[in-house]
Nucleic acid binder design. Structure first.
Lengths: 137, 137
DNA sequence: AAAAAAATGCACTTCTGTTGCATGGCAACT
DNA sequence: AGTTGCCATGCAACAGAAGTGCATTTTTTT
């Protein structure tokens, strides 16, 4: 528990009770979560608080947004492999068509793409949909 | 005009006035459009009609959805290079951070990605964000 | 012309994301 | 300890897009 407090402080985020809970929830999830997921997990917490908690976490490089094409934004903890701090999160995401969960494949980077003349790439997002290891087994 | 009628009929879509207008609008746009865009273009038309027109077009393989990460679904005409009919739309999309328009790069296919064991790919979506040829010139 | 089928339009709902404002709690300072 | 001020929290309300149900109009078919 203390380690989380220390971690949050190192990111310049005040370790309030709510934030600790949200962080722990994210840490024990190994998939990306929507605001709604978190809302359901903590029935008593206010949506706005959770919303702003995620915003804060995002600004401070604790979580990153995941757009998996489902139409609702998801969030996942930044990890060693994820260079969100640099602003370039180039690992890819996998969305399972069966269990509907989205996982970060932090090891797998997006390959080099060569664009037509005049196009300048600044950021990219690659989502692969299919069956995850859990559901295919 | 007649060519559009014939085309729509070949796709088993009845060529109503509204649908011809929407098709022509999509054809003259060289970028992906949201429902809202179309709504604005035809002030007198009802949103639901346009909504269902796009749904119909999508089902019949006339347009395909584009998810460019802006949070609102866009639509673009299917073209020669686009294999939407097979259910696999593997070309990539470019979203300009300057003019906010999204274009299909039908020529550019998503490269082969090898996934971890147990993951089975069925579909994928790659969006590149940056500056488009118009804005970089 | 009548019946059937399909398209359109209206109203309304839901879901997500977002902001403004009031309140409450913690922290620093006197 | 008391006061001040910042930051977090909670409530309410709004905005935008997606989607549904039903009545009405248009088109096709018989």
């Amino acid at each position: 528990m203390d380690t989380i407090v220390i971690f949050l402080e190192s990111k310049k985020v005040r370790p309030t009770a709510m934030r600790l809970l949200v962080y722990k929830y994210m840490a024990q999830s190994n998939v990306a979560r929507t605001l709604g997921d978190i809302e359901n997990a903590f029935a008593k917490a206010d949506r706005t608080t959770l919303y702003r908690t995620l915003k804060t976490f995002e600004e401070k490089g604790i979580v990153h947004q995941v757009d998996d094409g489902t139409g609702t934004i998801k969030y996942a903890l930044c990890e060693a492999g994820c260079n969100c701090d640099i602003g370039r999160d180039l690992h890819l995401h996998f969305h399972c068509n069966n269990c509907r969960e989205t996982t970060c494949l932090t090891e797998h980077k997006i390959p080099q793409i060569n664009l037509p003349d005049g196009y300048i790439a600044e950021d990219m997002n690659l989502v692969i949909k299919g069956i995850c290891e859990h559901c295919s087994g």
